[in-house]
């Protein structure tokens, strides 16, 4: 599959939140206003892209040669946790303003399913290093797209009369469900029609 095909697949067809349900906790928790949604989306995109490459390298050059592929899960989560910590330290040193914007979201990312999810999917799909990078980037962009759309909907919902039992999380889930219905319009025939397979 071409790189553009991978990007379209993970941004639209296999959107991480709306189709695969990965990263739902921050999606519901952080989508109350669009500023924090953009911050969370950027932080997740950065970490998924870097983690995809690093996990691919760990799997291919460390686990496979030593016949330790069964340690995939445990080594990936440790790599991701260390990576998030390192990214946090680097950003704090290099760019205090960016740290101010992303800082509070970074610790949450370790337990975001999307990061571990894309690392495992890359291995299952047999992507090479560059393809892993693009799928990680696209997964993050898909997450960002969904969380920004959601935050705009929720800002509107604040001023809309909603039944008491539905306020907050339930109506957010139902809005997400309706958005997922719209995303069903993107299916894999899109790739065939665009001659990307």
């Amino acid at each position: 599959m071409s790189y553009i095909g991978i990007i379209i697949t993970y941004v639209f067809i296999q959107n991480f939140i709306l189709v695969q349900f990965m990263g739902l906790c921050p999606f519901i928790g952080v989508s109350r206003n669009s500023e924090s949604a953009i911050g969370m989306g950027m932080a997740v995109t950065f970490v998924t892209a870097v983690a995809s490459v690093v996990c691919y390298a760990v799997y291919t050059y460390l686990l496979v040669p030593f016949d330790l592929a069964y340690l995939e899960t445990i080594s990936f989560i440790l790599v991701i946790a260390a990576l998030v910590q390192m990214v946090e330290m680097v950003i704090r040193k290099m760019s205090p303003s960016l740290y101010k914007a992303l800082g509070i979201f970074l610790p949450l990312i370790t337990t975001n399913c999307a990061v571990l999810g894309i690392a495992i999917i890359n291995i299952d799909e047999g992507y090479n290093m560059l393809e892993s990078f693009f799928s990680g980037l696209a997964a993050g962009l898909g997450f960002t797209l969904a969380i920004i759309l959601m935050s705009n909907i929720r800002e509107k919902l604040e001023t809309t009369p909603v039944r008491k039992a539905f306020t907050g999380v339930p109506i957010a889930f139902i809005s997400a469900g309706l958005m997922a219905l719209a995303f069903m319009g993107f299916d894999s025939s899109l790739l065939t029609n665009l001659h990307l397979v």
Binding site: V19, Q20, A176, A180, F183
Partner: peptide
Amino acid sequence: TLAAGALL
């Protein structure tokens, strides 16, 4: 059974 149904 599809993704949207789960969220709803």
